[in-house]
């Protein structure tokens, strides 16, 4: 009986991870018009920083989390200057390939430093979870849901209530006009990368105790997050969140009721159907015809 709410809970938890990474995709896409193929590797890097800090160096867990998040922000800025900024005046393809190159570099850099063996991280909370009405609420999933919700709420406040948030929005809507008003466009894009890296890193840190920390853990998450952002309507922030959550739920139910081996396929089947029926996504506007 409690099967359905149980699956819903798990699905939303996993969906939150997709949503966070999808959000990172969308923010960078809106600021630069480029799909960042290394977005998933931000999660991988975040998780590995945690392994280094919490396991290898024995830094207290929650301090390690804070250090990891700050490091991710710095990493995002570095990524911008190394991978996007030199190509900012080019068409999207060279930039896309550049992000692919970055993805290869990051995965194999970590591989060289850490070897191929997957690492594991302990759960972040000291208790396994609660049982409410026959549904077991795993503490890690709860944490994921809470953190995602808090991040989305914070992001909303930041974008809607602060001048800096408005400047970031203005930059993503019209870079040239933004520069005419004296908004430092390059800095705004740097901040966007930093924030996207933090989102990806947080997703990696949160999901690490559920999965093994491996160099290609980001790839699968990123592909699903990408699918989620298309389903939501590419470039739309709300769409990315809703798409991510929906995908997590669909996948969990699909695995439970249809087929476990094809679990990873449901996301893409849904994506496929969406692209056929409603290519602009749930929240996307109709593709404008412009001559």
């Amino acid at each position: 009986m409690s099967m359905i709410p149980q699956l819903l809970f798990t699905g939303l938890g996993i969906g939150s991870i997709y949503a966070l990474v999808a959000l990172g995709f969308v923010l960078i896409y809106r600021a630069t018009n480029v799909v960042n193929f290394a977005q998933g590797d931000f999660s991988m890097i975040g998780a590995f920083i945690m392994v280094v800090l919490a396991i290898d160096l024995g830094v207290p867990y929650w301090i390690a989390v804070i250090v990891a998040v700050v490091t991710m922000a710095a990493f995002g800025i570095l990524f911008n200057y190394g991978v996007y900024y030199p190509l900012r005046h080019r068409t999207f393809l060279p930039v896309v390939i550049s992000t692919i190159g970055a993805s290869i570099l990051l995965q194999n850099g970590v591989l060289a430093a850490y070897g191929p063996h997957p690492q594991s991280l302990p759960p972040m909370l000291p208790f396994p979870g609660f049982t409410v009405g026959g549904v077991f609420l795993d503490s890690q999933y709860l944490l994921i849901l809470v953190v995602t919700f808090a991040l989305v709420a914070l992001q909303y406040l930041f974008f809607e209530r602060t001048m800096l948030g408005k400047k970031l929005q203005a930059t993503s809507q019209d870079k040239e006009m933004a520069s005419l008003l004296g908004i430092p466009v390059a800095l705004m894009i740097g901040i966007t990368f930093a924030y996207s890296a933090v989102l990806g890193g947080v997703a990696g840190i949160l999901v690490a105790p559920l999965l093994f920390v491996s160099i290609n853990m980001g790839s699968t998450i990123a592909l699903k997050a990408f699918a989620a952002s298309i389903i939501g309507g590419f470039g739309d922030v709300t769409g990315a969140i809703v798409g991510g959550l929906a995908l997590g739920v669909v996948e969990t139910f699909g695995a439970a009721y249809i087929s476990v081996p094809y679990k990873d396929g449901f996301a893409f089947l849904v994506l496929f159907l969406f692209l056929m029926v409603r290519p602009q996504g749930v929240f996307g506007e109709k593709v404008a015809e412009k001559a």
């Binding site: 408005k166 929005q169 203005a170």
Partner: peptide, 24 residues
């Protein structure tokens, strides 16, 4: 410089658009 075609940020409100004029 107020460029041709007005270039209002479509997703921001009128108040926000005007406020951003002070970014310099």
């Amino acid at each position: 410089h107020v460029p041709e075609g007005r270039r209002i940020f479509p997703g921001l409100t009128v108040r926000e658009n005007i406020l951003l004029g002070s970014s310099n």
